[in-house]
Write a protein that binds this DNA or RNA. Structure first.
Length: 677
DNA sequence: AATTGCTAAGTTTTT
DNA sequence: CTTAGCAATT
């Protein structure tokens, strides 16, 4: 039995309002996840069937957390005696919801069911290929920019009037080719996942009806971050039954630049006039000093619903504001403060976080942390899955699931070298353009291969045979003796002598062994899929999981005692007892580009997000000079600092004045440690 | 095929 | 200053 008594009145109202449209305005730290999970559990308790409940999030991390917490709240699903699978509420990201829907219905749209999902780097190589075929006018075109534009065009939010609409024009020109290229590969990109579902809904109303019948109660988390396509999907699902509960905070909308429409949340009444709006304003995270500062900052934004956070946590200590000579002094002193807190107040590293606007700002901080022998953990940066050997290996796997995936095929066709030279691949590629089919299909076509020299033809034929031979065992489905994907993969890696290739190509044996280790690491996880599926489907779902879930390394994140270094964007949803916000300078926050783009309000929300991460203490700093592109540039305090009420702030300049010699960082800590232990 | 050297640019990031 | 991407050279 759910204990609703532990909720405050607003939370309880939100949990108990199950029918019709609801908008839960959940301020930072107001127990949002608790409300969502309780609401789902409450639905189950009130007899709403689990399979009719859908909870949508943006990140896999959020989905996982919600899934876990809901499972703890609702009774274990009993196995029904008619052999039906016990059902659970569907809690997943927008993209994985769309994959589910498309795996059922995509054949109606002319794709094959084993479509692959292209991630950003694969989209980029597809675009590069098209650009190289297009008349090269003097100016160089950045594929990344074109991709961004393309995505905006597809999502119907390309301004096409901005200063550089030549880029937009190129993107528009490229679009049909890009789309047919992906279609020929039986591939879809992240945008397609959403857009194809919308197309399915309009062109095949019976599929929409099926989805509506299944998902009768829909909840959307972080609603302020939904883009146009996501809004349309939600709207299509719910406009009949109207059981839509959206949860979000307009003041924490910081992803406008990637298509999020804050108006989806602000104009909820336009689409659902009967919506019940519930505000969660009691905060369980921060002191009132921090909340009042945050309230005062966000008050300056115009288009917002309005909200006052408060808490029962007392006032706490004042916000401490530091001015530093330059970014190096800033970094050194922040490290000093961290160590002081740890030594004198027994505050562990893991309770402290440094927040910054841009990733480059982490550099001086990392240097200082290392000098001070402080363990830290940098969030963001290069992913495991960006490594070359991992990408190669995944490309192989994708080819075995779907040989028509040209991007993957071209990636690995001659890795390791097997006589498929650039020239040969170029010719195959243009043949595939002519015949409007995949490269693999062309390779199998005798009419095409006949035009090649005997040597090239042999290489092509043996490659085709290799692919078909290797994917063969994937089709055999024996539930008693399932194929072990890891040993299957071992075998083909052996056959192509990939590890030897790595050893040969790497400069040092250590580098090669490290890459080999990376692949072995991945091999181990290959058999994690339910064995009720055929090997092919297990592999497909493995690849899907990887493409849709980039943050698999998070176990590492929580490991041990370490200071967190994180951007203000990626800190949303997190909290830390002690927060240091660095680089509060005009041009960094608000970022200089935001002035040109007229997104000052979003920058202010970003500051608001950063402020509301802090539970107990907040330290803010800015510098008089900052190294930019190698040169020291003068800078001014951020205009946002004026919005902090004076009575909440303590200027700590005096403390920073004590001289710190550059090379003595380590000695100083040693002295401090000695004095305190 | 691979390595070197030059040029240009340099927010935020998830799926 | 750093780095990524590309062109030119061996």
């Amino acid at each position: 039995m759910l204990n609703l008594g532990s909720l405050n009145p607003q939370q309880r109202l939100a949990v108990e309002t199950l029918q019709g449209p609801v908008l839960i305005l959940a301020g930072a730290g107001t127990g949002k996840t608790r409300v969502i999970t309780y609401r789902i559990a409450h639905m189950v308790e009130r007899g709403i069937s689990r399979e009719h409940i859908l909870g949508v999030t943006f990140t896999n991390k959020a989905a996982r957390e919600m899934q876990e917490r809901v499972s703890k709240l609702i009774p274990k699903p009993q196995k029904s005696n008619d052999g039906e699978k016990p059902s659970r509420p569907t809690i997943c990201t927008f993209h994985s919801l769309c994959v589910r829907i498309l795996r059922k219905h995509i054949e109606k749209l002319g794709y094959k069911r084993n479509f692959v999902i292209y991630d950003e780097s694969e989209q980029l190589s597809a675009i590069k290929k098209i650009l190289s075929h297009i008349s090269v006018r003097g100016e160089k075109i950045d594929p990344g920019v074109i991709l961004a534009r393309l995505s905006k065009i597809k999502n119907g939010s390309d301004g096409f009037g901005a200063p550089k609409d030549s880029e937009s024009a190129v993107a528009r020109h490229i679009q049909p080719r890009y789309e047919s290229a992906l279609r020929a590969c039986n591939a879809v990109d992240f945008d397609d996942l959403l857009l194809l579902v919308l197309r399915l809904f309009t062109e095949h109303p019976e599929a929409l009806d099926a989805c509506r019948a299944k998902y009768r109660y829909v909840m959307v988390d972080e609603y302020q971050d939904t883009n146009a396509a996501q809004f349309n999907i939600v709207h299509a699902l719910t406009r009949e039954h109207r059981n839509l509960c959206v949860v979000g905070d307009d003041d924490q909308s910081i992803y406008g630049w990637r298509g999020a429409e804050i108006s989806n949340l602000l104009d909820m009444e336009k689409h659902f006039p009967e919506v019940k709006v519930i505000k969660l304003e009691q905060n369980y995270r921060s002191t009132n000093t921090i909340l009042n500062a945050a309230n005062a900052v966000i008050k300056h934004n115009v288009r917002r619903r309005g909200k006052q956070l408060w808490s029962q946590n007392g006032h706490g200590t004042k916000i401490s504001l530091h001015t530093f000579k330059d970014d190096e002094e800033e970094a050194r002193t922040i490290v000093e403060l961290i160590e002081y807190a740890r030594m004198a107040k027994r505050i562990p590293w893991s309770a402290q976080a440094i927040l910054f606007r841009t990733n480059i700002q982490s550099r001086p901080l990392e240097t200082a942390l290392r000098q001070g022998q402080v363990r830290y953990h940098l969030i963001g940066g290069q992913s495991f899955f960006d490594r070359r050997e991992i990408r190669d290996f995944l490309a192989y796997l994708k080819i075995f699931v779907n040989p028509n995936d040209d991007v993957s095929l071209l990636r690995i066709a001659n890795v390791p070298a097997r006589g498929l030279s650039d020239v040969t691949m170029e010719r195959l590629l243009s043949a595939s353009h002519e015949r409007k089919c995949s490269v693999f299909a062309v390779m199998k076509n005798p009419a095409v291969t006949a035009t090649f020299q005997a040597q090239a033809r042999n290489s092509i034929e043996s490659f085709v045979q290799f692919v078909e031979r290797t994917r063969d065992p994937l089709e055999s489905f024996d539930a008693q003796h399932p194929v072990l994907l890891s040993s299957w993969a071992d075998r083909f890696l052996d056959e192509i002598r990939y590890f030897n290739e790595l050893r040969r190509a790497e400069k040092t044996p250590e580098a090669a062994e490290s890459r080999i280790r990376n692949i072995k690491e991945l091999l181990v996880t290959l058999d994690g899929q339910p064995s009720s599926l055929s090997p092919h489907d297990r592999l497909q779902s493995f690849l899907e999981e990887i493409t849709l879930d980039t943050e698999r390394e998070e176990e590492k994140e929580n490991a041990g005692d370490a200071v967190t270094l994180i951007t203000m964007h990626s800190c949303k949803g997190l909290e830390f007892p002690h927060v240091y916000i660095v680089g509060m300078e005009e041009g960094l926050l608000p970022h200089s580009r935001s002035k040109e783009e007229g997104t000052l309000d979003e920058e202010r929300r970003l500051f608001y997000v950063a402020l509301t991460r802090a539970m107990q203490t907040l330290t803010i700093s800015h510098c008089a000079n900052r190294k930019k592109y190698g040169q020291s540039m003068p800078c001014h305090p951020s205009s946002f600092l004026h919005d902090l009420p004076k009575e909440l702030v303590e200027h700590a300049d005096e403390l920073a004045k004590k001289p710190v010699s550059a090379e003595s960082g380590r000695d100083q800590f040693a002295a401090m440690r000695a004095a305190l232990s």
